[in-house]
Simulated scan of single mutants.
Amino acid sequence: MQQRDETPVADQSVADAVQGNWVDRLAPPATRPYLRLSRADRPIGTWLLLLPCFWGLALAAAADPAGFRLWDLWIAASCTLGAALMRGAGCTWNDITDREFDGRVARTRSRPIPSGQVSVRGALIWMGLQSLAGAAILFTYNLTAILLGVGSLALVAIYPFAKRFTWWPQVFLGLAFNWGALLAWAAHAGSVSPAAVALWASGIVWTLFYDTIYAHQDKEDDALIGVKSTARLFGDAHTGTALRVFLALSVLLAALAVVLALLPQGPLPLALGLCGVWAFGWHLGWQMSRLDTTDPARCLHLFRSNRDAGLILALFLAGAALV
């Protein structure tokens, strides 16, 4: 007789979480469903939300003759905490709106709401608490950054519904996930420049790149339930071509941002910034060389590797601010 799985639903891991993650191992059992709802067991999303903030802060400091300021330590720390909180709130909202879809997809049916670990009411309360904590951080910034932060809420609210009406939901994800490039720039500089906008645009196309790879994990289930994505739009046959276009456009826009910001600062900061853009593009090319859209595990691995791609660019931009 086959042994029945006696694992309590209240302590059920999520299927695509990293094995042995800290939530499953260390968090108090009562908190685990809520931490899983916030994707604390899958930190890559927090990285991908945070890294554009680091880009914006570093490039703004590099474009500033004064360079980094003491206040920037708070901007960096608060962006880190804010990214975790707002990614958690956004994922909670996403899971509330997608609970019917998630219950019908193999990879997502173990998430806290469809698996019964958290009620919709409990999820709404949890989302509100995370949002309030994020707002407390946001209101320590200048007025321009505060207004940008408030404006991002519309993008966060719309994104979960995008897959219902467009083949390009990744665009809406990119608009929201890279908003931090504008916000962190404004938090440092008090305004937003064309270089910041170019950097934001580069991040949006980067999101199209990595989230198309990610969406190939679910394309068969998505087709069955009628959910749209760029992975389904391009299919296995044309995804490679689309990703090459996204790679080139993201690199060109990042280079434009660097030139606009650093050309007046001299050759060394400019060279460091452009080297960072080249290294970022190299990493995306490395991902392309290993991509197999028919292998979900490979797609997930490459998607997660974008943390390293974003960190490379952030470190070079920080170096440009320090020379």
Rank of each mutant, 00 (worst) to 15 (best):
T31E: 09
D16A: 14
Y34N: 05
R4L: 14
R42D: 05
D5W: 02
P8M: 09
R39E: 02
W47Y: 13
R39M: 04
P52A: 15
Q19L: 07
I44H: 11
S13Q: 15
Q19M: 05
Q12K: 12
L49N: 09
R36D: 04
T7D: 12
D11M: 12
R36E: 03
R42K: 13
S38I: 00
A10E: 15
R42N: 00
Q12W: 14
P29V: 05
P33D: 00
V9A: 15
A40C: 13
R39A: 02
T31L: 12
L51I: 15
D11Y: 08
D24A: 15
L26V: 04
Q12S: 15
A15Y: 12
R36G: 01
P52H: 14
L48I: 08
Y34I: 06
Y34Q: 07
Q3T: 13
L37W: 07
P52F: 15
T31R: 00
P33F: 09
P33K: 08
G20P: 11
P43K: 05
S13P: 15
I44P: 01
Y34H: 11
L26P: 00
P28Y: 07
Q12G: 10
P43F: 01
P33H: 07
D16W: 05
G45L: 10
L48E: 09
L35F: 06
P8G: 13
L51A: 14
N21Y: 06
A27H: 00
D16G: 04
P33T: 02
E6G: 07
A40H: 07
A15M: 11
I44Q: 12
L26T: 04
Q3N: 09
L35T: 00
L49W: 06
Q3G: 06
L35K: 03
P29E: 13
A30V: 09
R42P: 01
P33C: 12
A15P: 04
Y34G: 03
A10I: 12
P33W: 05
L26I: 01
T46G: 06
T46C: 08
G45E: 04
G20M: 09
D16P: 01
P28D: 10
A15T: 06
R36N: 05
R25M: 08
P29I: 10
W47H: 05
Y34V: 03
L51R: 13
R32M: 03
R32I: 05
T7I: 15
S38V: 00
P43T: 03
A30Q: 11
P8L: 11
R4P: 00
P33M: 09
D41N: 01
G45C: 07
P29S: 09
Q12H: 13
D5G: 09
A17G: 11
L50H: 08
Q19T: 07
G20S: 12
L51C: 15
R39Y: 04
G20V: 07
D16R: 14
L37I: 05
A17K: 03
S13F: 13
R32V: 01
P8D: 12
L49C: 11
T7P: 13
P43Q: 05
R39I: 02
G20K: 08
A15D: 14
D41Y: 01
P28Q: 03
D24G: 11
T7L: 15
W22F: 04
G20N: 12
L49F: 10
L51D: 14
P8T: 11
D11F: 10
A30H: 10
P33I: 06
L35R: 00
R25I: 06
L51N: 14
G45V: 07
